[in-house]
Amino acid sequence: MDPDVLRQAPLFQGLESEAASALAAAMSTIHLDRGAVLFHEGDTEDQLYVVVSGKIKLGRSGSAGRENLIAVLGPGQMFGELSLFDPGPRSSTATAVTPAEIRSLDHDELIKWLTGRPEVARALLAQLAGRLRRANDVVADLVFSDVPGRVAKALLDLASRFGEETAEGVHVHHDLTQEELAQLVGASRETVNKALADFATRGWIRLEPRSVTILDVTRVAHRAR
């Protein structure tokens, strides 16, 4: 485990090195294979998780059985914190998109840190505020943005976390299937594929298996507005 990756999580921000090491030591390690489910929507467990390596997707199932992806998370990102403040059932299903290493912290252990470390409480409040802001953005996008605009925005978001600068542009190895990309955007696979094909025809992107190279970031960013 890379301690620098773990300390990218909001939970560790503001902690001194000794305190961060103590918090890391209180966490358990979980290894997941691709496709393994960490928890299901409706489960009642109350642990907080931090991604150390790999990718995790958070999804919800609709009444018709179709899945909607809420987020795709990578190293340094945290999830599951809602259950620490609201001990109801899990609001999503967490599944490994790739082989992944996860660190978990039990509710009772975190309460100790919240009581003695106000900086931890502030970091968690900032995380929750960010989650609410993103949820508001998603609602606004569904109301005001067309599918190509949402696809462009999703590509930029994935690039910001998983992108690698190359001589041609930004290579984004997102590890998602076409169906998962559609679920992330909140549209049908056919509509999302049509938007991606249009971007490729215009020379903005190059499509590759479970990845994409953004050749013209400016054009994609303009389409995302």
Rank of each mutant, 00 (worst) to 15 (best):
A200T: 06
V97G: 00
P209M: 08
R90S: 03
E18Y: 07
G42T: 00
R161H: 13
Q77V: 15
V5E: 06
E190S: 14
T44S: 15
N193W: 08
H173G: 10
M27P: 01
E101G: 04
S53M: 04
V212D: 06
V151E: 06
R117Q: 14
A154G: 01
L15F: 04
A22C: 09
S145K: 09
R189L: 07
L38V: 10
R210V: 07
N68W: 15
E41K: 06
I111R: 14
R7E: 11
G88V: 10
D46W: 12
R223W: 08
R122H: 12
G169A: 13
V139Q: 12
L184P: 03
E164K: 15
A152K: 06
E16R: 14
L124H: 02
V192A: 06
P87M: 08
V185S: 04
F144R: 13
L156I: 01
G65F: 09
T93P: 07
V185N: 05
A9E: 06
S104G: 13
V52I: 11
F144M: 11
L155P: 01
V185M: 03
L32M: 07
L124N: 01
V50F: 03
R189N: 12
R161K: 12
E168Y: 02
L128Y: 02
G59M: 12
S91R: 11
L158G: 01
D137E: 15
N68A: 12
Q8N: 09
A100G: 04
R189T: 14
Q178G: 12
S28R: 11
L84I: 15
Q178I: 07
P10D: 12
I205C: 03
E81V: 12
A24I: 14
